[in-house]
Nucleic acid binder design. Structure first.
Lengths: 187, 187, 187, 187
DNA sequence: AATGAATGAGCCTTCATTCAT
DNA sequence: AATGAATGAAGGCTCATTCAT
């Protein structure tokens, strides 16, 4: 049920009708309302779905990486994974950002995501550099990832996925090195 | 006339009614259509307005900076200027990104903006490092700026404006230094 | 549902609002669109309804008439029956003619009606006179019927129904007689 | 000024905008209103224009015909003249009939036309047959003319102009002959 | 005489939402 | 659980009409 919701992104806009969503999910409009009560709820469910999937991805990526440095790379890779780069997902994110302008719940969800990414980065960075630096670097990395992401929505502006990953990692490593960390580069 | 268009951003969503816009501009709905023909045209006019203003800002910033390094800093400062950081402007950008998912003209405008920022960066970077590096760094800087920008839409996620500027400049300088450029740091 | 559509004619103009139609049919505007998709479709449905009813009327009239001469009279009677002479129906026809100026589908429907009337007349006339004459007479009779019909829209210009019927039949018989056919007059 | 008004018929519907009419007449909407006060007035002016032209045509046709029989033929010819058969004129008539459903003035104008045609026919017929017959025949001829006319609006249903004229004249002569009049046939 | 600018009113259409089944 | 039918509320857009110039 929730899987089909992701299709919202396909329309890439808030104009998506409950009817369209329902049809794509193979159910009637009435049933969609029976499940979700309200249109905003459908959007929020879709957000939660994408966020949850992303959370799982990141967690498993972190889990299977041995060292903090590897974990950092894993986080970046997960953030710029093929699934997250899919057109519909990017479009959906965009919509969520707009939605967050109105809906406090949407804003909360988006902040939860941002905070989680941030604290994941900080936690691992903090094993290599002091907390203040860790925070700063984490902010930079996070911003860059989001920037790459939003540029993806333009279909032609941003770098391809491998370059994007390399770019963020370069930045990360550069920052670490400038803070005195020596680490074996591995993309 | 065009000044009032910016007010679109205040609503921060595609849900903005032509009626709302018209009222805020102190005119009737009919008159708004008399001038702009269609709602999409109103949005595009607003985009052009913001883009134009931003273009002027950047151009003048570049013009009054003496060295390439200073020009680069100026571009960053302009991109993260108070005007561009205003809530309504950020919200409007967001809306434009969504709009670009449908409207080819909106997408075109957005790409024009991105390309302009990119070539401004590259042109100045290329005086310091080889073109390939210049392009790479420009992409990184551009992505970071956009990322900071979009995070601003969350009202609380991103860094404040001074930190943001510093962050991007740090990244820029780091990149240049790592490519062998020596330059007097000046934020 | 389709019965209520005829009410369009009551307004007697293209100015009829979907809202008016819907209200007269005892439903909401939205429901009217739910069924007919578009306003033009409502008009076309009304046309089809009237045309179908008329078709049934003519067919049954022809069926229950024994001889070709009787069938011809039956066609005339049916074309000028009370139902077809009702103010709203006449008004609706008028509207359809106007509509046909734009809508190819409306024009098509109207031509189908004209062709059917024509071929019904020709088929029966051809049993009495050669085809060339049959065609000519059919055209004359058809034109006269339509003329009587349109004059009815003026509320006071044309003849009353019985006179109208007599007039067309007179013309028919006159034409036949002049072509050498002898037939027992029966109105 | 009034000549350009005829262009209304080009649109062939009541949907014609005052703006369209004005533009076609080479003036601004505001000026059109300055002249005609209201949209209905524009339509009425157009009706009067067409009716007047037609009146002149008929009057001169009657005037230059020597005998009553010739005058009758002349009336028919005038009624089915090339000018009256022009697409825009036919379309305009149609619109007027619809308009007459609402506007009493439009209805009045249309009835004036009908009455004038009728009395012209009757006057001349009455020189050949008793008044009762004259009235009857006049009604038939009038109806047939209007019928041919309206069929013209379908672009493809009705007979061409020469056949149409012949058809009405045939009917006229047939009627006269059957009432005992002997006359030299001349189309 | 002529027009650009301005508007109130209204119409078609869409849509989220509900309800009876 | 599921849906067709139904609706109130809006929204974009058009248009006849007016007004200031």
């Amino acid at each position: 049920m929730s899987a089909t919701i992701r299709e919202i992104g396909l329309a890439g806009s808030l104009d998506v009708t409950v009817g369209q969503i329902a049809k794509r999910a193979g159910m009637s409009t009435a049933l969609a309302h029976y499940y979700f009560e309200t249109k905003d709820a459908i959007f929020l469910a879709a957000m939660r779905h994408i966020l949850t999937e992303f959370g799982i991805l990141v967690r498993s990526a972190i889990g299977s990486a041995p060292t903090p440095a590897a974990k950092l790379n894993a986080i970046i890779d997960a953030s710029l994974s093929r699934e997250q780069f899919a057109d519909e997902v990017v479009a959906a994110w965009l919509v969520f950002y707009v939605q967050a302008q109105h809906s406090t719940e949407a804003a909360r969800l988006l902040r939860v995501y941002a905070r989680r990414l941030h604290s994941n980065l900080v936690a691992n960075l903090n094993t290599l550099v002091p907390r203040a630096q860790a925070v700063r670097i984490a902010q930079g990395v996070g911003a860059m990832i989001d920037g790459i992401y939003i540029r993806q929505a333009l279909h032609g502006g941003g770098p391809d996925r491998p370059s994007a990953r390399a770019m963020v990692k370069d930045y990360l490593h550069l920052s670490l090195v400038s803070d005195g960390v020596t680490l074996e580069t591995e993309h």
